[in-house]
Simulated scan of single mutants.
Amino acid sequence: MAKITFITTNNDVMEVEGSSGSVMELAVENNVPGIYGDCGGVCSCATCHVHVAPDDMAKVGEQGEIEKDLLDMNDCATEYSRLSCQIEVSDAIDGITLTVAEY
């Protein structure tokens, strides 16, 4: 079971827990504001864009090539950007903090 902390665009803090699926799916199931997942998790819309806390980057890993290309077109992307649909929920990411990106 992984516990994930989301910081919304209003600076509200939400903690959610899950054991499978993607972080985007978990966020949508728990009504995290600003995470929409319009494409259903196929890495084509960036409506699940988050900023990973710098200390947690090693836990979530690097962007995939398609994800990188999509984020390169996003004005709000930083070196800590990830699409939450591309992060799998597992014990390995327990305790991470993600800030929901502005659009």
Rank of each mutant, 00 (worst) to 15 (best):
A58I: 11
K68C: 09
N31Q: 11
N74L: 12
D72I: 01
A2C: 12
T8S: 12
G34M: 05
E102F: 02
G18Q: 04
G37I: 13
G18A: 04
E17G: 12
D12F: 04
V16Y: 04
G34K: 08
S90T: 02
I96N: 08
D91K: 13
G40P: 04
N74S: 10
K59P: 01
M24W: 13
S20W: 05
C85I: 09
I4E: 06
V100K: 03
E65D: 15
E65M: 12
C76M: 12
A92S: 14
I4P: 10
V100M: 10
V50T: 06
L71H: 13
L98T: 09
K68E: 14
S90F: 03
V13C: 01
E79S: 14
G34V: 06
M57I: 15
A101W: 00
M57T: 08
V50I: 14
G40S: 10
Q86L: 10
S81E: 06
I66V: 11
G64T: 12
V28S: 08
I93G: 04
T8D: 07
G40H: 04
C43R: 06
I4W: 11
A92N: 15
V16R: 08
T5R: 14
E15F: 02
E29S: 12
V13G: 00
N10I: 00
L98A: 01
A92G: 10
N31R: 12
